[in-house]
Design a protein around this nucleic acid. Sequence first.
DNA 1: TAGATTGTTAATCGATTAACAATC
DNA 2: TAGATTGTTAATCGATTAACAATC
Lengths: 215, 215
Amino acid sequence: MSDKSQIPDKIISRLPQYYVQLKRLLEKDCQYVSSEKLAEQMELSSSLVRRDLSHFGSFGKKSYGYDIHCLHEKIASIMGFTREKNMIVLGAGYLGRALAHNDSYEERGYQVLALFDVDPAIIGLEFNNTTVLDVDLAPEFIEEHEVEVAALAVPFEAAQKMADMAVNSGVQAIWDFTETPLETPQDIIHIEQNMNDGLCKISCRLMDRSKTKTQ
Amino acid sequence: MSDKSQIPDKIISRLPQYYVQLKRLLEKDCQYVSSEKLAEQMELSSSLVRRDLSHFGSFGKKSYGYDIHCLHEKIASIMGFTREKNMIVLGAGYLGRALAHNDSYEERGYQVLALFDVDPAIIGLEFNNTTVLDVDLAPEFIEEHEVEVAALAVPFEAAQKMADMAVNSGVQAIWDFTETPLETPQDIIHIEQNMNDGLCKISCRLMDRSKTKTQ
DNA sequence: TAGATTGTTAATCGATTAACAATC
DNA sequence: TAGATTGTTAATCGATTAACAATC
């Protein structure tokens, strides 16, 4: 609750980038990296890198740079990768199946325990080593396995109902792939993974381009 | 090329939101909406709404508000929804199959013409009315059908190769679902749909929360 | 010691908000 | 006319950058 725990949102959004870059350097067996070099890799200014990193304490060694190993671990711990988090996927359509497996889950401390669906035809099947269970079993499953995160990959008609179910069963966070505005309690972490926004950006830019061409 | 065509990035990122909200009001048969009301729906300030919208000209009518129909159309046209865009999906795994169909493609002017994969076992299959073709046919297909956008849903080992292929064949934009840093020419629109960032944000927030609890 | 690089303070830049004259 | 609401200008806020003293 101290001010220290309040990392500005802008920095939080750069944290995964720092993490990936540091991991890269680690694999190259580097020991120290300067803010200048890190900035160059990330297309940021070195000033910003130093300012960002200074939020987490003094990791830099003057005239050497930053201890890569140390910083990498620190960032992993700030992002909570060291904490095991149980996750389920609601909806076992193609997207749900895709979400059931991801190379980075393990590194980030996530474990997908099960897929859930209403369709009897796919209940019992296994995708990427994850079994599809009947969605009616979900509430009990969430409680029993202390599931913290639910990925929501159901059709939009079912979205609100499923979200409510997950929240009422004790889930802390919803990783939301539906494109519907969803009502969730204020204390629930609700991350919208809105893919349509990506599409909009693309067509926006294509538009700019064709305009330029015509002129 | 004029200054007018340069809509600030921050506004562009709010455009899809405006679009969705206006669509909603349109369905409710509303004719005018005030900046105050629109702002409330979007959890923005009315000042910002007016400022944003003033970039596109004077749509507001003093003492009435904004003509919803008019504004909705204008924003659709700015985002290039009125322009038909051909798209292909590279990689016909679960994610690729999920990307082959999306309720909003049509409204936004996108059409998915085909899926591509290397696996002979799935070449020829159809998912959501879209056929899987041999990836070797992709270059010719892209040229012939004037494909502008390639969704990249291949394993990370193949990512760079596939991106290069798409770019060399004439694609304008890459909608990138790989979690690998990809090299693309400067004049190519490259949108990273990085899902891991969403996961990072979730664990970050969960971390904050458990910290608070302990204190 | 001279050179490199941090951590931090002050300056700058850009985006949001408040305020209000114009006007329907 | 009185009330509502825009479009825009000035004020504020927050984030980034430049600069530099501290120090390894």
